[in-house]
């Protein structure tokens, strides 16, 4: 394992200390553990809390700030944060108008967030949740766990965050998040795995000419292995599945070409170039494009394509101001 780290056991802690030093205006850490909240709490709004395992940076702490998240609980690499940590986060961000948890659809995350919500509700804090499940690689009908939450979570946080910042009620913020979830689809591919520092072993092994198709964000194997191809060919595989999942024809979309952490922007832009061409040929209008490392899997090489079908409300919320470490919209 070749990594730029110190002790394996202190990866998360030292990363968070580094983040705090990089962005003291945006975030502060709670005493109880790896729970981060806005440096300047905004009172009188619905609070948004998210999180998950570490290793997805800038998700989730990078999206704490005005117009997006209020707090984040960060677990160990690829491991859901513990319920008691999330609970502390909920208490810290609660500003009197309810707390919405934005959870990615993983068994561990849901169990811990739900336990945390139960604890907070016992103290009279109103808590509701949305579960992001944008990954079309997993057939939701076959496997009862359903689809994973992946890069579409960033757009969910952006849009729900804009709604909350504008002073909406908890039910309205939740409805906006649910609308994103209903209209966002993602699929990813990896050409090289990631290695959890504490494990020291790669999540899967590929031959030189192989790729994992339909990966999640935890360095796990995808739905199947396939021979690699050109950027356009690989993108077509992903787009085909995404476009078959909901009817995008004639609609406007936001495109997110997301890097897994180890893929250069050069390649992501090559992908984006083709994505735009394909969408144009199908009469789908691109309203907004994001290209970059928004939801990573440590050093994994690969990318995902996310399409969010937009209406006027979603366009407005997507364009609303956001000021966080990793997502800025002016």
């Amino acid at each position: 394992m070749k990594k730029i780290i110190n002790e394996v056991d202190r990866v998360e802690e030292q990363m968070i200390s580094g983040m705090l030093k990089a962005a003291p205006d945006y975030i502060r850490k709670l005493e109880c553990g790896n729970v981060l909240v806005r440096n300047k709490k905004k009172e009188g709004k619905v609070a948004l809390i998210s999180g998950g395992g570490s290793g997805h940076e800038p998700f989730a702490a990078g999206y704490i700030g005005s117009g997006m998240l209020d707090g984040v609980a960060a677990g160990a690499v690829y491991t859901s944060p513990a319920a008691d940590q999330i609970y502390e986060g909920i208490k810290a961000v609660s500003a009197g108008r309810g707390v919405l948890m934005i959870i990615m659809n993983y068994t561990g995350d849901i169990m811990n967030f739900d336990m945390a919500a139960e604890m907070a509700q016992m103290e009279g804090i109103e808590v509701d949740r949305v579960i992001v499940n944008d990954d079309v690689a997993v057939d939701g009908s076959l496997y009862t766990t359903g689809r994973r939450g992946v890069a579409g979570t960033v757009l969910t946080a952006k849009i729900a965050g804009a709604m909350a910042e504008a002073g909406a009620e908890l039910s309205e913020v939740k409805a906006a998040a649910e609308k994103v979830i209903a209209n966002v689809r993602t699929m990813g591919v990896a050409i090289n795995p990631s290695t959890i520092p504490a494990s020291g072993k790669p999540g899967f092994v590929l031959e030189e000419d192989e790729m994992e198709v339909g990966i999640g964000i935890h360095g796990e194997p995808g739905v199947y292995k396939a021979k690699t191809g050109t950027a356009d060919e690989i993108s077509d595989v992903l787009l085909e599945k995404i476009l078959a999942d909901i009817d995008y024809s004639g609609s406007e979309v936001a495109v997110l070409v997301n890097g897994c952490g180890g893929t250069p922007l050069m390649e992501l832009y090559i992908v984006n170039n083709h994505v735009h061409d394909v969408l144009e040929s199908k009469g789908i209008k691109v309203y907004k494009t994001l290209v970059g490392n928004y939801m990573t899997s440590i050093e994994q090489e690969g990318f995902s394509i996310t399409l969010l079908k937009l209406d006027d409300q979603l366009k407005k919320l997507l364009d609303a101001p956001a000021d966080t470490m990793a997502y800025k919209s002016f």
């Binding site: 319920a83 561990g108 169990m111």
Partner: peptide
């Protein structure tokens, strides 16, 4: 275990 294991195994 809930607090330190976290993940899925912690709550379970």
């Amino acid at each position: 275990l809930v607090s330190v294991v976290a993940g899925s195994a912690g709550p379970l």
